[in-house]
Structure formats: C-alpha cells, structure tokens
C-alpha cells in the first residue's frame, strides 16, 4: 500500500483536521457525479477507492474510531443510471449499458436502428456523443430531449450536469482566485469617483470639494 498521507497529498504526520480537510476536497474532486459522462469514470472510481482506503487507515490508526469514509455513506460502485432502470424499455436499457461500458460502436448501431426518434432517442444519442467527445452535438440533443419532455428529471439532470461542468471549469477558483486581473486600475477608479461626484452635484451635494 502506498503511504496514505501521500495519497491524500499531505506530509507525513499531518493533523487529523488536515487529513479530514484534504479528504473532503479529494472526494469532491473525484466524485462519481463529476465523472458521470466521462470515459475515465472507472479510473476516477479507482482513485476514490484508494483515497478512501488511505483515509480509513489514517483514521483507524489515530484511534478515535471515527470511521465514516465516503464509501460507507454511499455506494460508489455503480454510478450512473441506476435509479431509473425499472422504467426503461428493453432497448433503452441495453443502450444505456453499452454507453456506460464504453461500447460506443454497438450503442450507435442500436440507436441507428431505432425507428422512432423520440425524446429518449435524443437523450441517449446525446449521452453517447458526450462520451465520445462530440460536445456541440451532445448539447443540442440533450436540450432537444428536455424540450420534448420537460418533466423528465433524468434528461434535465443530464443537461444540468453539462452546464455545471462548463461553468465549474470556466469559473474555477484557481482562475478567479488571484485577483490581479479583476482589480480596477487607477483610471477606472478616477472615472468612477468623477461620475459619483457629478451625480452628487446633480442632487445639490458635493463629493469632492475642489471640482
């Protein structure tokens, strides 16, 4: 087994608080929900398992018996479509399984053979495109599926995942964390003050006495 502290990205002998903090962040990073439409979901699961083991090991050896790693609270083994299987027709179920297992060619063949292009067809084709890296088409198809059947939560969730991922990366903390780009420069501070002064003068008051 690898050094559990190393797995959590910490130095040897880090405090329990640090371990917990690192653990929480890593679980968020490798959460199955985040890798749901990604071809590397299996690797993410493996990574999460490793993190859980490391966390369990440290907590157990720290001796306070608080063993409540992520795995125990929620089963990470089967991510994905589990909840909705019972409602699906045979065909839809098969295609979902094929997409989930990465068998894209066969899934595409089945989709092509479907006669009716209903909302579920758009949804499945969208998921398949998403996994294959055809994001533009995927986005259009998922949106179409939601439009066709606005009450279907499964479709809506898939579309939400896509836009969450888009905004999540676009506004990632690393990008927005250091603020040298966002802070106003001298020029815009002066103009703002000038505007504020003019507005005050309009109302009869004055912000900057000299002008």
């Amino acid at each position: 087994m690898r050094n559990p502290y190393e797995v959590l990205g910490l130095k040897d002998g880090a405090s329990i608080e640090e371990v917990k903090k690192a653990y929480r962040e890593l679980v968020k990073k490798y959460h199955p929900d985040r890798y749901m439409d990604n071809p590397l979901s299996e690797l993410a699961e493996e990574k999460l398992r490793e993190i859980n083991e490391a966390y369990d090991y440290i907590i157990k050896n720290a001796g306070n018996g608080q063993r409540q790693s992520y795995q125990r609270r929620q089963n990470t083994g089967t991510s994905g479509f589990t909840g909705s299987y019972q409602h699906d027709s045979q065909m839809v179920y098969r295609i979902k399984m094929l997409i989930q297992n990465g068998n894209f060619t066969q899934a595409q063949q089945l989709l092509d053979s479907m006669q009716v292009r209903d909302s579920s067809w758009h949804y499945l084709q969208g998921l398949l495109f998403l996994r294959r890296g055809w994001y533009d088409r995927a986005n259009v198809l998922l949106r179409r599926a939601v439009d066709m059947e606005p009450n279907n939560m499964e479709y809506r969730e898939a579309l939400n995942r896509v836009s969450n991922q888009y905004y999540g990366y676009r506004h990632n903390p690393y990008y927005h964390g250091s603020g040298y780009r966002q802070s106003p420069d001298m020029c815009s501070i002066c103009t703002t003050l000038w505007c504020a002064d003019s507005l005050c003068e309009c109302c009869g008051g004055d912000l900057i006495g000299c002008c």
């Binding site: 890296g133 896509v162 991922q165």
Partner: peptide, 9 residues
C-alpha cells in the same frame, strides 16, 4: 461552449 467544455474534460 465547445472550447470550454473540451478544456473541462
């Protein structure tokens, strides 16, 4: 959309 989504993947 497609550019940023590719980067996020």
């Amino acid at each position: 959309f497609i550019l940023v989504y590719s980067l996020s993947e």
